[in-house]
C-alpha cells in the first residue's frame, strides 16, 4: 500500500511536469510560426482563438481525425515504433531539468550526462522512421540526419566538457549554482555560440534541416507518415528543440537563477526565470529559421568536423590551462 502511494505521488509529479511541457510545445509551435511570419512581414496564424493562440490545438485535432496510412511494403513494427521513440526520448529528458533548487523530478548525480545521452539517442527515431518506410526519400533523409546528428553531438559533448571544467560536478543544480556570480555565457561566449549552432544542427532546425529538406527530399524521413504519427514526430521535434533551449539556458544562462541577485528579482520563482530564458533562446531559434538560407550538405559536415570540433577542443585546453594556472579549479 505504501509502495502504491509512492508510485502515485511520482505519477502525479510526472504529470505535473509533462502536461505543461506538452502544452508549451503546442504554444511554441504557434510562436515559431508567428515569429517566422513577422520577420517576413506576414501575419502568421491569427484566426483560431485570440492572436491565433489555439491554432496548434486545431492542427492537433485535424491530425487526430486523419487516417494513419502504413505503407504495405514497410517494416510495420519499426514504422510504428519510430514516432513513439522520438516522442518518448524528447519527453523523458525533462526529468532532470531543475526548475529551482528543489523543484526537480530526479536530482541525479550525472544529470548533464543523462541529458546528453538522451539527446544523442534522438537520432534513432529518425533512422528507424527512415529505414522502416522502405522508400527512397525517407531513407536518404535518415542517412543524412544520422551523419549530421552524430557529427554535431561531438562538438556539443566537448562544449559540455568546457562547462564541467568550470563547475566540477555533473549535477545540473550544481551547474546552475556555480553560475551564481557570473553566467558562463560571459567567460565561455564562443562556446555558447558554437553550442547554439550545434543545437540547431542537432535538432534539424533550419539552416541545417537537411534531413527534411523539402526541395530535395519531399519531407525526408517523415514522407510516408500521416495523421497522428506525423504529429508525434512533429511534437517530438519541438519538444527536443525546447529541451536544447533548456540545456543552453542551464549550461550558459544560469538556469533558474535570477539575472540580478537583488530583492525584487529574487522573489520571482526560479521556474519563471528558466521559462523566460528558454523562450529567449527559442525566439533566437525561430529568428535563425527566418533569416538564414539552408546549408549545403558538405558545408554542414565541414562546419561540424573542421571548424567546431577543433575550436571547442582548443577552448577546452585554454579553459583547463587558465583554471589550472590561476588555481581556480573547482575542488570538492
Amino acid at each position: 500500500m505504501e509502495y502504491l502511494s509512492i508510485v502515485f505521488q511520482e505519477v502525479y509529479k510526472i504529470l505535473f511536469l509533462l502536461v505543461p511541457v506538452l502544452v508549451s510545445v503546442a504554444m511554441i509551435v504557434w510562436l515559431d510560426r508567428r515569429v517566422w511570419a513577422f520577420v517576413q512581414k506576414r501575419q502568421g496564424p491569427n484566426v483560431v482563438g485570440p492572436f491565433g493562440l489555439l491554432q496548434s490545438l486545431a492542427d492537433a485535432l485535424k491530425y487526430i481525425f486523419k487516417e494513419i496510412i502504413i505503407p504495405s511494403s514497410s517494416n510495420k513494427v519499426i514504422f510504428i515504433l519510430a514516432p513513439i521513440v522520438t516522442m518518448t526520448l524528447a519527453l523523458i529528458a525533462w526529468a532532470v531539468i531543475p526548475f529551482s533548487a528543489t523543484q526537480v523530478l530526479a536530482d541525479i548525480n550525472v544529470g548533464i550526462l543523462y541529458l546528453f545521452a538522451v539527446s544523442s539517442l534522438g537520432v534513432y527515431g529518425i533512422i528507424m522512421g527512415g529505414w522502416a518506410s522502405n522508400s527512397k526519400y525517407p531513407f536518404l533523409g535518415a542517412i543524412r540526419s544520422a551523419a549530421q546528428m552524430v557529427s554535431y553531438e561531438v562538438s556539443i559533448g566537448v562544449i559540455i566538457i568546457n562547462v564541467l571544467l568550470c563547475v566540477g560536478s555533473l549535477n545540473l543544480n550544481d551547474i546552475v549554482i556555480a553560475q551564481q556570480n557570473m553566467w558562463f555565457v560571459i567567460p565561455l561566449f564562443p562556446m555558447f555560440v558554437i553550442f547554439f549552432i550545434s543545437a540547431l544542427a542537432e535538432t534539424n532546425r533550419p539552416p541545417f534541416d537537411l534531413p527534411e529538406a523539402e526541395a530535395e527530399l519531399v519531407a525526408g524521413y517523415q514522407t510516408e507518415y500521416s495523421g497522428m504519427m506525423y504529429a508525434m514526430f512533429w511534437l517530438g521535434e519541438y519538444a527536443n528543440i525546447l529541451l536544447m533551449c533548456a540545456m543552453g539556458a542551464i549550461l550558459f544562462l544560469g538556469g533558474w537563477m535570477s539575472p540580478i541577485d537583488v530583492y525584487p528579482f529574487t522573489l520571482v520563482p526560479g521556474a519563471i526565470w528558466l521559462i523566460l530564458k528558454i523562450l529567449l533562446l527559442f525566439i533566437l531559434f525561430a529568428l535563425v529559421k527566418a533569416i538564414v538560407p539552408r546549408y549545403r550538405y558538405d558545408q554542414l559536415m565541414r562546419l561540424g568536423w573542421k571548424v567546431f570540433l577543433p575550436l571547442s577542443l582548443i577552448w577546452v585546453v585554454l579553459t583547463a590551462s587558465y583554471l589550472f594556472y590561476f588555481n581556480l579549479l573547482p575542488v570538492n
Partner: peptide
C-alpha cells in the same frame, strides 16, 4: 551511474548508429 550513462552515450549514441548506418 557514470558507467551506465557513458555506455548509453558511446555505444548506443555513437557505435550502434554507425553499425546501423553500415548495415543499412
Amino acid at each position: 551511474e557514470f558507467l551506465g550513462m557513458i555506455m548509453l552515450i558511446v555505444y548506443v549514441g555513437a557505435v550502434a548508429v554507425l553499425f546501423l548506418f553500415v548495415v543499412m
